[in-house]
Nucleic acid binder design. Structure first.
Lengths: 340, 340
DNA sequence: TTTAATTTTGCTCCCGCGTGCAAATGTCTA
DNA sequence: TAGACATTTGCACGCGGGAGCAAAATTAAA
């Protein structure tokens, strides 16, 4: 009695095998695995059973090839030093997966590499590219968009003025004004703004907004300092070299940081290297509300982005077949803690 | 003169289009994009130019379908609260991409979801699955392996006793003994071990090793406490409830933590909630050497995993067509700072 | 210069599934 | 129960490119 049962090893079970097993045609089998399928519950059941027995799962490569929809999006990141990225990835992967989207994770190694990263994604024929990094200049975006290798290029958590790009972000202007008002209300008068890297395209309007608003409404011109990456360690170095030489009287009374990554680095160095108290000697605000901002060590006053709402809107955008302007700004929430 | 030039919009440029443009056959075009190709430099040049002009990029879905190699690996994660994951992702994405591998990022939502996550990956016909999370029980692994949906199932940065699985990890036993010796040498006598969640399969041997070793060599039985996830916030809570009620004399003199995520949470709560000094009142050790361990705030004595070596070995494993035992343990490095 | 060895090129036949339509089957009403 | 309509099912063809071999072109040897 040679090979009574099929080999348990599923060399490659295709829809044809399942069709034979279930006594239907291949197309019926495939239909059973599509949600919009028009199929009788009877044959659906037959197919399910046969597929189960054979261990069949549809091949998404083939499906994608035939249908020209991959249900795959590329997620391009570069600044892995920013702890907020972990939060964003968690939220995006969770929600995208729930809605049937898979994610190709691409590490954009450096600015020169952005083009390669995009090309990489295009070879997999992703339906969209999501940028949550920082090193994307307009020329790279334009090249990518010109080649039209993907239908949608989404800049997440960052506003962009590029008209061919979809930007889903928090309303930086509104947020920064709220922070400025709060800072002033609490009695701070000599703010210093700690900014991140400037890129020509995907830009944060936080620094500009804060500085302009403060000047217009409260008279004085805030100092500003820039860090070349959203990296706590780098921020710490910059803050140290900027502040350590100063006399106590000429120190700012508050450090308004472009995001929590910078604020965290600043906090550490202010406390441990400069030996100052927060908020008594210098107060600090951040932006993003990363998990550790809430912890006992930082208790950071910051601004929370509505990431879940943003991710859900992102899915909407991905699913949409329209060709309208998808840009959208969200309102976040000022979260007050003890740091300012 | 109707449509003199081709539409700039690359609806879908295929190898056929390029072949026509370059005056060669389709197969020559495809060969031009494979690195092992046997092609004359003359036609390679012609193809390159034509491809450039038309904006052609080979379709990896089709290539994968035809060749049965996708050059895609799935990366399954669940514990996004652990900052070390960010480091691991950075390293893996960097090295894998450099070697021509793309990454499918899958968020394993919870333990019950692991099966779905695996199935998800299998539908894309990934060449391998890499697990860097924690919620993978043996039954899930066995199901996945039994279905034989991928050639390799790699457990990264965690040892596994499952014989069908490839484990690339640091030698926990060696590392923990080194830590235990160091702790004892420094004069600590009442250690408490702060452990993470226990899963039946992908297991860390750190707690067992430390406790056994300490008992055997130094007589006393260390206390142990467990946290249900590698999450600093959770660790903080557990440590607070465990230690806050005790008199100072009955406190441990050192907290040996299974990894930095726990150590960070513990540090915060010990300093800010219990009002104790580190290391004078309680010392702390971690494991992983996350970026913030080096920062001014934590200065954590910890153990660094050779992630780059491990990732490079991972690539070797992926590329190999042999069927041998790939399990491998690496030696890391004890990194001493001020916390212990 | 002719023949043999070698490299390059073209081609047939798949890979596994979706699209759109026609045939078949089922359901409802009069 | 026949006719009209709705639902299911089957099928030819195509998506873009790889494997392996045969034909053609190029190079080396005699």
């Amino acid at each position: 009695m040679p090979d009574e049962k099929k080999p348990a090893f599923a060399g490659n079970i295709t829809a044809d095998d399942v069709a034979a097993e279930a006594g239907v045609s291949r197309w019926t089998v495939n239909r059973a695995f599509r949600k919009d399928a028009s199929i009788s519950s009877k044959s659906l059941e037959k197919v399910r059973i046969a597929a189960e027995r054979l261990g069949y799962v549809p091949d998404l490569r083939a499906a994608s090839l035939a249908s020209d929809r991959s249900n795959l999006v590329a997620l391009l990141i570069d600044d892995f030093a920013n702890p907020h990225k972990l939060v964003m990835m968690e939220r995006l992967t969770r929600i995208l997966r729930r809605e049937g989207w898979d994610i190709l994770l691409v590490n954009t190694l450096d600015r020169a590499d952005a083009g390669h990263a995009l090309l990489n994604a295009s070879q997999r024929r992703v339906d969209a590219v999501i940028l949550i990094g920082i090193q994307f200049d307009d020329d790279v975006l334009d090249t990518a968009l010109h080649a039209r290798r993907f239908r949608k290029l989404i800049i997440f958590a960052r506003t962009s003025r590029n008209p061919n790009t979809i930007s889903i972000a928090v309303d930086d202007v509104h947020a920064m004004r709220e922070i400025a008002n709060y800072v002033h209300e609490r009695g701070y008068r000599r703010p210093m703004f700690l900014a991140g890297p400037r890129t020509s395209s995907a830009h944060l309007l936080r620094k500009e907004t804060f500085v302009d608003y403060w000047r217009q409404h409260f008279g004085s011109e805030p100092e500003t300092v820039a860090v070349s990456a959203y990296d706590p360690e780098l921020a710490a170095k910059v803050v140290e070299t900027t502040l350590s030489a100063r006399k106590k009287a000429s120190l700012p009374d508050i450090l308004v940081c472009e995001n929590d990554a910078l604020a965290i680095g600043a906090t550490d160095v202010i406390r441990h290297k400069l030996g100052l108290r927060i908020p008594e000697d210098i107060a600090i605000t951040g932006f993003d509300d990363v998990p550790q901002a809430e912890g006992a060590n930082y208790r950071l006053t910051t601004y929370r982005q509505p990431l879940t709402d943003m991710a859900e809107y992102l899915v909407e955008v991905l699913d949409s077949r329209e060709d309208r302007d998808f840009d959208r700004l969200f309102r976040g929430k000022l979260t007050v803690r003890e740091s300012a």
